[in-house]
C-alpha cells in the first residue's frame, strides 16, 4: 500500500491575529508555525496503517522555505520520504489541489490523507478538489476509517448522526479530530529523519480562481453587563433580559 499524506503549515491556533500592512494578509511577525492540527490525524492514520499492514508513506506539502521544518517532523514521525512543492500561498484551495494532483498523478497512491480543513483558510476544500482532479472516491471529515481489499468504510459526523460511507480505493480521505490520537516524534525518529529523502519540486504557477482582497478583524462586541444578587435574583433577571431586551427566548 502506498499512502500520500498532504500537510499544511499553519499559524499556531493560539496566535493573536494581526492584519499585515497590505490589508489582505496575516502579519507574520510573532507567528509560530505548526502542522495543521487536523493533518496530524492524517499523518497518524497513515502511520497506523503502515504499522498494521505495511505501507510506504510519503508526506507532501505546498509551501515555502519554512515548510521544510514541518516535513522533517513528518519524517521523524515515521514518513518514509517527503516532498516540498514550492509555491506561493495564494489562499486559493484550487491551486493547492492542482499542485498536489500534478504531483500525485500516476504515482500509484492507494490512499491520500489530508486534514479536513487547514486552520486559517478554513475552506475544507483541498481534499474534495484533489479527489475530483484525480477522479477518485472521497470521504470527508472522517472520524473512523477501515480499509478492505480495494475498498474503504468511513464514518463521518453529519447532521442527525454519524454517516457511514463506503467506497473504492484509491480514495481521498480527510480527517477530523477524534479519528486517532496523534503521536510525538521519538529521539530515534528525529535522528533517523536526517537520513530520509526530502525532495523539492517547483510548483507550476496557476492563476488563482479566488483571491482575498481584504482582511479585517471582526467588530468588537458591545460592552455587556453583570447581573447582581443571589442565584435566584440573577436567574430571574437573566430570563427577563433574554425575553424582553435580547428577545432570544
Amino acid at each position: 500500500m502506498k499512502i500520500l499524506v498532504a500537510l499544511k503549515q499553519v499559524p499556531d491556533t493560539e496566535t493573536k491575529i494581526k492584519v499585515a500592512a497590505d490589508g489582505r494578509s496575516l502579519d507574520p511577525i510573532d507567528v509560530k508555525w505548526i502542522t495543521n492540527p487536523y493533518d496530524e490525524n492524517a499523518m497518524e492514520e497513515a502511520l497506523r496503517i503502515k504499522e498494521a499492514q505495511g505501507a510506504e508513506v510519503v508526506a507532501v506539502s505546498v509551501g515555502g522555505e519554512r515548510t521544510r521544518e514541518m516535513l522533517r517532523n513528518a519524517l521523524a514521525l515515521g514518513a518514509d520520504s517527503a516532498v516540498l512543492i514550492r509555491a506561493l500561498e495564494t489562499g486559493d484551495p484550487l491551486s493547492v489541489a492542482r499542485h498536489l494532483a500534478a504531483y500525485a498523478q500516476g504515482k500509484g497512491f492507494d490512499l491520500l490523507l489530508l486534514g479536513h480543513m487547514g486552520f486559517g483558510g478554513d475552506n475544507g476544500a483541498v481534499g474534495p478538489m484533489l479527489a475530483e482532479l484525480l477522479g477518485l472516491a472521497q470521504a470527508t471529515v472522517v472520524t473512523r476509517l477501515e480499509l478492505g481489499e480495494g475498498c474503504f468504510r468511513a464514518e463521518r459526523e453529519a447532521e442527525g448522526g454519524t454517516e457511514v460511507i463506503e467506497g473504492s480505493l484509491p480514495a481521498v480521505i480527510t480527517t477530523q479530530r477524534g479519528l486517532n490520537e496523534p503521536r510525538y516524534p521519538t529521539l530515534k525518529g528525529i535522528i533517523g529523519a536526517k537520513k530520509k529523502p526530502l525532495e523539492e519540486l517547483e510548483g507550476t504557477a496557476t492563476e488563482a480562481a479566488i483571491s482575498i482582497s481584504a482582511i479585517a478583524l471582526p467588530p468588537a462586541r458591545p460592552e455587556g453587563r453583570k447581573l447582581e444578587g443571589n442565584a435566584a435574583a440573577q436567574a430571574a433577571a437573566l430570563l427577563q433580559l433574554l425575553r424582553e431586551e435580547a428577545k432570544v427566548i
Binding site: 479566488i210 482575498i212 481584504a214 482582511i215
Partner: peptide, 17 residues
C-alpha cells in the same frame, strides 16, 4: 465575506472565474 482563522478575522474574497 467569510471568516478566517476560525472567526478571528474576516476576509473579502473576489472570484476570478
Amino acid at each position: 465575506l467569510r471568516p478566517l482563522y476560525a472567526g478571528k478575522a474576516l476576509a473579502t474574497c473576489d472570484f476570478a472565474t
